[in-house]
Design a protein around this nucleic acid. Structure first.
Lengths: 251, 251
DNA sequence: CGCCTAGTTGAGGTAAGTCAATTCACGTGG
DNA sequence: CCACGTGAATTGACTTACCTCAACTAGGCG
């Protein structure tokens, strides 16, 4: 399905390799360095954290299948979900680079991941600097998503925020073949969405009803349906430029 | 003032070199590669944008003196300030890495900067991979700040948010010698703060009054005074771990 | 002197929160 | 097979934090 030249095997099996290849044209040698970063394969069950806020010297993970979320807890017990992760995303990369985790990561569904060790990562930079560039790109893209998220919470109303959220998720899932402009499967509960977009669960429900009654989008039984994609995108002021990658920037 | 061994001259003159040195112990050779990244020195006057949202192939800048802010505009004219930049910070690094700017950068005061070109940056990674690690660290730290900002807007009340904001700024300024636990000079208007923490300017004023009357902090005539630092930090639930750097992680 | 920008304060409106009750799907043990 | 408990979604009634509009003050400057 994703067989492209001789690199097909690795690219097909590794969503991360596929994602990075969109930015930096990686050679076979570079792909194999990337491949060797993948250590032990592990699975986690839904609900049991894999990265713990405040803990030092965590491993990072590359997500192979399933959904996770990264979040921060406040002293009063409230939590803010910073982002959801889907296959091909890093889990806890910041924890490794900063040496201490400023957040937690919880599986939303059962997960398959591979471990990555900090030392291997920095070592890989020395061997293949272009990989460093590629990772700086991933980190920048993640930051761009967090920034967009920040703008939404700071300045958009609840309905626009929800619409934007559903669209961004759809866009990201489409990139890894798990969604389309028609919709996508989504294992999130209304409580998770509430913690992500900074609303109460009750209000999430009301807003979803509004979007449904206005014929824009329907979220029901674990599936998001875009009833009118263009109208929804216009309503949400959805700009995709921060997500799109037109082609490899480094030849 | 900051003369440390033979590297003193560069470290003293370059706030960025000082910041990075806290993370990766850079050799003379690496410092001189970093030094050669600094191209033309430029100045900008307050209010005239140096990076423009949506524009491609921007240069990045390293801030030498002055304050700037990065922000995003919404179609309805509202804006959300994502972060303020102080000396030693990058301006528009994400724009360069992502090839397109997802945000704008505006000087808050008159600025002194030096330009950095994308090609030089990626070239430098090849010569000194440890510089790549150091930059990934900067990007991760910036992201951690944006994340903390997101949590504040999503889950903290207006007063806690303001308190947290003042404390984070104080902490960052102290690191570059421009502040202390007593307070700091701050050129921001209440309108800028409003756009940063997602409040109306009117409400910013009320909240500042509340903090002042409660004996926590005073912001007046361009100066922030911490009237009771510990009480303020407790009130804001201020955790510094995401900002602190205990020492070089890479020897 | 008058204008502009920044800050301050009051009055009243509204988006979103909280509390609470109900439904529904489901799994599990008797 | 049914009784029960649990977690998710749904809806209504009431509260509140923050916004908007508006008026006024105080400093800086051509």
């Amino acid at each position: 399905m994703f067989i492209i030249s001789g690199k097909g095997t690795i690219i097909e099996k590794r969503p991360l390799a596929r994602k990075l290849s969109a930015f930096v044209a990686l050679s076979d040698a570079e792909l194999s360095v990337l491949e060797r970063l993948h250590k032990r394969r592990r699975t986690f069950v839904a609900g049991r954290d894999l990265v713990h806020q405040g803990q030092a010297d965590q491993a990072a993970y590359i997500l192979l299948s399933g959904w996770a979320c990264s979040y921060k807890l406040l002293h009063d017990g409230q939590r803010q979900i910073v982002d959801f992760q889907i296959p091909g995303d890093f889990l806890g990369l910041r924890s490794v680079v900063l040496h201490v985790s400023d957040h937690s990561v919880e599986p939303v569904t059962d997960l398959e991941v591979t471990e990555v060790f900090a030392a291997d990562l920095f070592e890989a930079f020395a061997q293949t600097p272009r990989l460093a560039t590629a990772l700086l790109w991933t980190a920048s893209r993640d930051e761009a998503m967090v920034v967009e998220h920040l703008v939404g919470i700071g300045r958009r109303g609840a309905a626009e925020r929800m619409a934007h959220f559903l669209l961004e998720l759809g866009n990201r899932l489409t990139l890894v073949g798990l969604g389309s402009k028609a919709g996508y499967d989504c294992p999130l509960t209304q409580y998770l969405i509430a913690d992500a977009i900074g609303l109460s669960a009750v209000h999430v429900n009301r807003v979803l009803r509004q979007l449904r009654e206005d014929g824009l989008a329907t979220f029901r039984d674990g599936h998001v349906t875009f009833d009118d994609y263009d109208k929804l995108a216009a309503f949400a002021d959805f700009e995709t430029s921060y997500l799109d990658q037109l082609g490899p920037l480094l030849k």
